[in-house]
Amino acid sequence: MSVATPMLRWQIRPMRPADVPRVAAIDRAAYRFPWTAGIFDDCLRVGYSSWVAVAPDDRIDGYALMSMAAGEGHVLNICVDPAVQRGGCGRRLVMHLLEIARAAELSIVFLEVRPTNTAALALYAGLGFREIGRRPNYYPADQGREDAIMLAWEPDSHPAD
């Protein structure tokens, strides 16, 4: 089996309203400060690019959301069920968003990530994202707030493989 084979086990499809309870459950399992189901409903309502990663047994293992406007993308949230993290699902979701960015001819894609999320930072760096700044006190944290590292990906400069 090749290294890339595990990623193929997830089919990426558009998120539907019926998926929101599972998506919110993944968020609660993975994050100390999760989004509410209402936030996911709002993302669907306004038409954000919203996707789920579905395993062969039809279980949703992760999701990704991106807004697109004025030739730019902003990854709003990507999350994978902790039970299958580090198995390629997150990479598959990010690559899907970057394929959408290319197809939409976006000039740049932004995202924020916690400095403590070293696995995500490594994933994004491996896909060509570069640090462009910091947002002070961006995320809620156990001891007040945590900064966000701002990252950017430009289709012409960084191929998504």
Rank of each mutant, 00 (worst) to 15 (best):
M1E: 13
T5G: 03
P6D: 06
P6M: 07
M7N: 04
L8A: 08
Q11G: 07
I12W: 03
P14W: 10
P14V: 07
P14H: 01
P14A: 06
R16P: 00
P17Q: 11
D19K: 10
D27M: 00
A29L: 12
Y31R: 15
F33Q: 04
F33D: 10
P34C: 15
P34D: 06
P34V: 01
W35S: 01
W35P: 08
W35K: 03
W35I: 09
T36A: 14
T36I: 00
G38W: 09
I39K: 13
D41L: 07
D42C: 10
C43K: 12
R45H: 15
R45P: 00
V46Y: 02
V46E: 04
G47L: 07
V52D: 14
V52F: 01
V54H: 05
A55V: 14
I60H: 06
G62W: 10
Y63H: 11
A64I: 09
A64H: 15
A64W: 10
S67V: 03
M68V: 08
G73Y: 10
G73W: 13
H74E: 09
H74G: 06
V80W: 06
P82Y: 10
A83S: 14
V84Q: 05
Q85E: 08
R86W: 02
R86N: 15
G87A: 01
G90I: 05
R91F: 00
L93R: 06
L93N: 04
H96L: 02
E99W: 08
A104F: 02
S107I: 07
S107G: 05
S107A: 02
S107Q: 01
I108D: 08
I108T: 11
V109Q: 12
F110N: 02
L111E: 11
L111I: 12
L111T: 03
V113S: 02
V113M: 04
P115D: 13
N117E: 04
A119V: 13
A119M: 12
A120L: 06
A120P: 01
A120Y: 14
L123W: 05
Y124C: 14
A125G: 09
G126R: 14
L127T: 11
E131R: 15
E131W: 05
E131D: 03
I132S: 13
R134L: 13
R134K: 13
R135K: 13
P136I: 01
P136L: 05
P136E: 03
Y138C: 12
D142F: 02
D142Y: 04
Q143G: 01
Q143P: 00
G144I: 10
G144Q: 09
D147Y: 10
A148S: 14
I149A: 02
I149L: 09
E154F: 06
P155R: 03
A160D: 12
A160M: 10
D161Q: 02
